[in-house]
Amino acid sequence: MGNHTTVTTFLLWGFSSFPELQNLLFVVILLSHVTILLANALIMSAIKLNHNLHTPMYFFLFALSFSETCTTMVILPRMLVDLLSENKDISLHECATQMFFFFGLGGNCFILSAMSYDRYTAIHNPLHYPILMTQKICFQLIMASGVVGFAVSLCIVIIIFNLSFCNSNIIQHFFCDIEPVVSLACNYTFYQKVILLAFTAFVLVGSFVLIMVSYVFIVTIVVKMPSARGRYKTFSTCSSHFTVVFIHYGFACFVYLRPKNSDSFRDDILLAMTYTILTPLLNPIIYSLRNKDMQTALRKDLGNIIKFFPKMINKRS
């Protein structure tokens, strides 16, 4: 490497590009983080406590909420600390660990694929649906999503952190994302770039193709239904999932699959906030607003919580 100095510590410098907004960003991100945790916790508890929600669709929704909760825990606490602290150092190993878990939990793309397959099975073969989508099969699909997600993530991390980093150690981002990190490498080749793009495309494009294939079959079945009311009812069962898919893939594909250069990192910071904060925030809202069973379960659980606190206060007094 000649006279290059090997880098062992990075600086997460993303929010330093917006010094005048750091206090406002801290408040917004903190409130968003708390809301994400509470909203997903409510959805998971509602699914767990209400037996009428013990169906494959809600089993996948539970897994999706859990995955997104874990994803935000990987990114947002560190963001909040960096906004308040002058020391934005992150070691090579910490950076690799953050990247591994962030992209590993990105296996929720395949959870969304499993959810679309579940909807197709329910619409295409409703009589055999309980046999085709047993709890065991649902669990296997969730586990497969996790294994694929973390396997791809491990390959990405191995490729990136076997590169040599020299001179600059400033990551122009608020977390260890692929492009801001590899832009600091001295020996990043076109071959490695193609491999990383292939892994990213496999997760995003591959899972999206599976979803679209399921929806093509769903639409084909639904348009053949003689009743307009039946068509509306069937489409409404898929509307929440399709809305989440549109938001999730729209932002993620734009960030990870479009051509980039170092000048685009500032734009990527703003776009990354959409899929690290906005998407996990919107998902529970979409599912609770557009699903009557979920609304009923949430009202019941919130009512029980409201009744619980006065009883506790009376006991203590």
Results as ranks from 00 to 15, higher is better:
T6Q: 14
T8Y: 13
L11K: 03
S16T: 11
Q22I: 06
L25A: 06
A41K: 02
L42E: 08
M44V: 12
L49E: 06
N52R: 12
S65P: 10
S65A: 14
S67N: 07
C70D: 00
R78K: 12
M79W: 01
M79K: 04
M79D: 00
L80A: 14
L80P: 01
K88T: 07
S91M: 05
E94H: 12
E94C: 05
L105D: 04
G107P: 01
F110Q: 15
S113C: 01
S113H: 05
R119M: 04
Y129C: 09
I131A: 11
Q135E: 12
Q140I: 14
Q140M: 11
M143Y: 06
G146N: 11
L154E: 07
V157T: 08
V157M: 06
I160Y: 13
F161I: 09
C166E: 04
F175K: 04
P180Y: 11
V181E: 04
A185T: 00
Y188N: 06
Y191W: 12
L196E: 05
L197E: 11
T200E: 13
I211M: 10
S214H: 01
F217I: 11
A228H: 03
T237M: 04
T237E: 05
C238G: 09
S239R: 11
F242L: 08
A252W: 15
L257F: 06
R258N: 06
D263K: 14
D263N: 13
F265C: 05
Y275R: 06
P280H: 02
N283C: 13
P284S: 11
Y287K: 09
R290G: 15
N291S: 08
M294V: 07
Q295M: 00
T296W: 02
F309D: 05
F309K: 09
K311C: 13
I313W: 00
S317C: 13
